[in-house]
Computed example of a mutant assay.
Amino acid sequence: MKFDREIDFPASQKVPLHVDAQNLQGKTLLITGGNSGIGLESAKQLAKMGPDKIILACRNMETAAQAVEAIKADGIEDVEAWELDQSSFDSVKAFTKRYNESGLDLHILLANAGVLPMKASRTPELTNDGHELIVETNHLGTALLTLGLLPTLRRTAAKANEHQLPRVVIVSSDVHYWTEFSPSKQEGNLIKVMDSETSWEDVIVRYYDSKLLNIFYGQELGKKLQQSQIKEDKQIVVSIVNPGLVRSRAEIEDPNSRLPAGMRELARDYTQGCKTHLFASIDPSAGKPGEVVYYTNCAPVEPADITLGKEGDALRERVWKDTLQVLGVTVQDFQW
C-alpha cells in the first residue's frame, strides 16, 4: 500500500476514532513508556476498565512515580512502575528476568516505548551496546523485551480461554510508508550496517527506518509463534499499531510550538490518539493468533509495499535473522 503525505496522511488524521470499553477484570497489563504522552493516556484509559494490575515500564523513574499516582486517581490501586531502558540490553534483560520470576501473568503487553531525538546529528549516536540509539531503543529493545517475556506469555496462554489470550501490541507508525530503507541495499548484518556512518542520513530518516523494523519484526514474530512446537505460542496474539500524529493538547494549541501550524491542525491529542492503541489491546475483534494485523484508525490496513510479496518476505526474514544475531539469541533458545 502507498500512503501519500499530502493526500492520504491529512485524510487519515481526520477519521473519527471509536473504541468500546471492555471488562479487564482479572488481567495484568504492561505498558512500556507509560510515564508520559500517549503511553500514559493509554494507561489511564485502561485503568478505568478494571484490570487487576498495571505495570509501567519506564526509563525515568521520577516521572514514572508521578504517572502511577495519576493512574491511581483514575480508579485502580494496583499500579507499579518498574525501571526499563530499552537502549540498554542489560536493562531489558534485568526487567524480563524480574517479570518472569514475579509469577505475574501478562495479558496485554503494549510495547509503546520509543525515541525520536530532536537534535540533528551528522553521525549516528551509539549506545553502550554499540548500536545506533534509535534502532536499539525502538526495535532491538522491543524485540529483546518481547522475546524475553515469552515464558510469562506462555504461562498466561496456558490458563487462558479464547477471550483472555495474551496480546502483544507493537507500536509502529505511518512514517514507515515513507522510508526507502536504504541500509537494506548494503550487504552484511542489517543492524550492524545501521550502526555505521555509511548508512546514516539523519535522525528523522532513521526514525522512519525503525518504525519499518517494528513492522517486519512484529510480522515475523507472529509467524514464528504459529510455527512453534509449543502449543501456547499459537495462542499469543501479535498486532501492530499506528497512532498517527499525536501531541499534547497544550502543544496543539500553542502558536509558538515547533510543530508547524498545518501539522498542529491535523494532530490528535492524547485522549484521541491513544484509541488505536486501546483498540488493538482490548477489542474482541482485534487480533487473532496467526494473523498479524497492522491497525490504523482502529481498523486493519495494509502496510507499506516494501513489506509485501517475495521481496518483502525476504527482507522480513533478513531483519529477523540479523536482529537475533545482534541480540545474541537463537531460535533454539525459545524452543521453536
Rank of each mutant, 00 (worst) to 15 (best):
T28K: 01
L259F: 11
S239V: 07
N214L: 01
A43Q: 08
Q272Y: 12
F9Q: 13
E125P: 08
Q45N: 14
P124N: 05
P10A: 09
G188T: 02
E180I: 10
A280C: 00
M194R: 05
I134Y: 04
A111H: 02
T127Y: 00
A64M: 01
S257R: 11
E162G: 05
T152L: 10
T96F: 10
L278V: 03
Q325K: 11
C298W: 12
F9L: 14
K192I: 04
P255R: 11
S88N: 14
A81S: 00
A57Y: 00
F95K: 03
E265C: 08
K310P: 10
I191F: 07
S210D: 03
K27G: 08
R5N: 08
A160G: 09
K44H: 07
L133S: 15
G218M: 01
V169Y: 05
H107C: 05
S42M: 11
D74W: 08
S42Y: 12
W336Q: 02
A67C: 14
W336M: 07
G37W: 00
T323G: 07
Q186R: 15
G37Q: 02
A314I: 03
K44A: 03
V292N: 14
W200A: 02
E251T: 10
P300S: 05
I108W: 02
V326E: 04
E253S: 13
S173V: 12
K48P: 07
V92H: 01
G328M: 10
P255W: 14
V319R: 01
L225W: 11
S210K: 03
C58M: 08
E101T: 03
T330F: 12
A314M: 07
G290D: 01
Y99P: 09
S121D: 12
E180S: 11
L153V: 13
V241T: 15
V92M: 05
Y295S: 01
E41H: 08
Q164C: 12
E125F: 08
Y294G: 05
T32G: 04
K93C: 05
Q235L: 07
P117G: 10
A158I: 04
A158H: 06
I38P: 04
F9K: 10
D174V: 09
Y295T: 00
L24D: 01
P243E: 02
F89V: 00
E125Q: 13
A120F: 15
L145R: 02
S196C: 13
V319T: 04
A267Y: 05
I71A: 03
P284E: 09
L126N: 02
E201R: 13
Y295K: 02
T198S: 15
T96G: 12
Y270H: 12
G312T: 13
G34C: 03
A304M: 13
T127I: 05
A47H: 09
G148I: 07
H139P: 00
L190K: 03
D313F: 06
H277P: 07
L24S: 02
D74P: 07
D8C: 00
E77A: 13
T142P: 10
E220R: 12
Y99V: 14
A157K: 03
T198P: 06
T28P: 06
A120L: 14
V92A: 04
G34V: 04
